[in-house]
Structures are given as C-alpha cells and as structure tokens.
Design a protein around this nucleic acid. Sequence first.
DNA 1: TAGATTGTTAATCGATTAACAATC
DNA 2: TAGATTGTTAATCGATTAACAATC
Lengths: 214, 214
Amino acid sequence: MQKKPYISMPVIRRLPRYYRFLRHLDKRGVTRISSKELSEKMGFTASQVRQDFNCFGGYGQQGYGYGVHQLCEEIGSILGVDRAHKCILIGAGNLGKAIATHISYNFAGFDLIGIFDNSEQVVGQQIADLRVLPAAGIRRFCSENAPLMAILCVPDSAVKSVVELLYDIGIKSYWNFSHYDIALRYPDTIVENVHLNDSMMTLCYRVTENEKSS
Amino acid sequence: MQKKPYISMPVIRRLPRYYRFLRHLDKRGVTRISSKELSEKMGFTASQVRQDFNCFGGYGQQGYGYGVHQLCEEIGSILGVDRAHKCILIGAGNLGKAIATHISYNFAGFDLIGIFDNSEQVVGQQIADLRVLPAAGIRRFCSENAPLMAILCVPDSAVKSVVELLYDIGIKSYWNFSHYDIALRYPDTIVENVHLNDSMMTLCYRVTENEKSS
DNA sequence: TAGATTGTTAATCGATTAACAATC
DNA sequence: TAGATTGTTAATCGATTAACAATC
C-alpha cells in the first residue's frame, strides 16, 4: 500500500534510473545500500535519494540503509514494469525496427502486438517475432486486439493523419518519436516524446559553447 | 553580440522547440508573432516566452511582437546549428542506421563523417552516403579526421571499452544512446543522453497510474 | 550502548508566473 | 494619441539541499 499517492515529475523521471541501478545491484547479489553510496554511484545527493524514496514510503532502516531487492521490486511495481500493456508500432523504418527490437529485448511494461507500415517493401517483413502489417489494417486490428498505447515512428508528414486515426479508435497513450505535438491537440492523452532533433540541437549548443569558451 | 552569456538549462532545452516552430513559421511566410500567440501554439505561458527570449537580448518590439525570421536566425546561431561539427557514429545496428539517416536529413550542426561497427555482416554496408568501417580502424580514422563528437549506438556490453578508446583519442562530446554513465566517469565530457528505456518506463508509469485511477 | 543512517522538517535555491511601466 | 506588446521587476511556486532528531 502506497503512503502518498503523489510523486512529482522530477522524481518520476529519476525512478527508471534508480530501478536500473538497483536491479543491476540485485543481480550482482548486493543486498543493502545506503543513500550515501547510492548517491555517489548515481550522481545525486544523498538528501535527494532519501527525499525521493520517501515519496512512496519507508523502505529504509535507520542505521542500515535500504534493502536492494525490496526497493527494486517496489520501484518496479510503481513504474508498472511488471505489467504488459499491449501496444502497436506505426512505421517500420530503421527507427521503428530499432524500437521494436528494443522493446522485445528490454522489457519495461509493454507488449508489442502489432507493427504497421504503408510501404509495400516493408509490409511482410519479420521484426521481433512479428510480421509487419499494412497500415490499412490498423482500425480492424485495434478493434480486435484493443492495444492501449501506440508508438509513432512515422515521418513528420504522415503523423497528423495517423494520430487522428488512432485517437478516433480510442488510443490515448503515445510514445512519440515524431515532432507532432499530440498533447497540445488532444489534451486527454498521455504522451512521452523522444525528440531526437531537439536532443541533437541541445548537444550542439553545448559543444558550440564549449568551443567558444576555449 | 549576445547581451548575457548565461542561459539556464531549462531555457536551453526549450530553444530547439522555439527554433523548429519559428523556422516552420518563417517558411510559411509569417513575419511577426507575439509572445501570446507563440505561447498558445507551443503550450508555454507568454511570460515564459518573453523571459526566455530576454536571456539573449531584445529581439522584440513593444506593441509589435517578434520578427520571426530574425528571431529564428538568432536562436539557430545560439544553438550552433549553422556549424558542422565533425562526428562519428559507433554501432550500425537498426538504431545506428536510423540515427545516421536522421542526421543527414535533419541537419542540426553536425556532420557525420564516419560509421563504425565490429560485425562483419555490417561492415561495408552503405548508410547515408557512408560506408560502414571496421571498429578496429577508429583510432587511425580519428587521428586523420579529428572528429569532435561521437554517437554511441553500441550495446551496453560494449560501450565501456568503446568510450575508453574514444576518450583516450581525445573525444570529449557524446550523444549517448546506451546506459553507460559517461559524465560520471569522465567529468570533463559533454554528454547528451537518450535513454529509450527510461523514457519507456516513465511512460509506463503514467499509463499504469492512469489505469489505476480510472 | 555507540555508530550509522534514515525520515522529516527547515532553509535555500532556482524557475515560473504575474504585474506593470516603458515604448513602439 | 490609443492600443498593443515588450522588457523587466516582484511574487509565487516548487524542487533541491542541509540539518538533525529518531531509531535501528
């Protein structure tokens, strides 16, 4: 039973990192860790680590630290990585293929049940145990299989109409690799954006700054 | 000439979004925009937009708004997208291929000059006008071509040794798609992480929360 | 018990929002 | 001039850090 239901966004964004690291420790047989140790290995402050873990109740023991296995399980369960939300992927280019493969190797709460593309060259290909289906079949597939989330790996030119279709079908959660601002158009959706271009420009800024100052 | 040299991290992360949107407007022939209009189309507050633009000096006019073209150019120049920092990509799997293709289509300050992989099946393939080279040749290639940044699309198991090599060669900037924490080991590096797994887990959390509450 | 380390409160810091005078 | 909208200061909000009493 969770103590406090509210976890702030910065904390939520740190949870996956904690989870990955704790799972790593757990696999290596480490049973306990203090907030100080953890903070040093992760680049946070010990204060922040304790503050973060306190959001979801006391899994630590004074004078001892935190039980790695228990904490890992707890964070995993909060994140929901023990679930298997059904999802579909639209756009099976290089990025789509990479993501599809990634999902099947790095299980994190989602079960990929369908891959779609509208290029004839791609339809029929086998990716991560799935055969790429024609985009024309999305609506029917969804009414039969009721996926909860869609992964968008389509070009920016196609994404608007794809989202219109998916939203109409009832899909409200998106992992979006395009630059279309879904959350602005459809405020009742859950959207996680991965904007590679923005990431690259931010890096470019920092590299450029560094060059200037040296 | 920039007024203030300091731009805070949250602002820097917003600059690419401004840049993309302003370029879009510019291409469509829009010449002026007010902070209010911009804020509505981007999901910020007007206050924040003005505050952000003020970091780098007055490109607005009272009673009029901002000149789209001028502002776009200025942000682009701050980001450094008008540069062509030489970079190499390590790991030409699906993700590496997607990124390589992405860079050549969405120019944002970097010029990809080499792609490396250690799999014989991949070496020799043609990606985005480049032929994939054997990983064994990285050191020599770098001493001849002096790339400034490396893109890491290698599996987590290989990344540690790859970074050791690249750092030794003198590369201090990384676009990192693996889960190896470069900045923690090498504090003098510039690292931009894209952690797909963390992004997916954050999405999973939000989807799971949403399910619980409904 | 003494030492260690949490849980939690208070202090600080920084970012966002609000307000409004300046001015085009 | 009147209306609009910026530039900038002040107020608010939230997140991080520091401190320390509680307690294993």
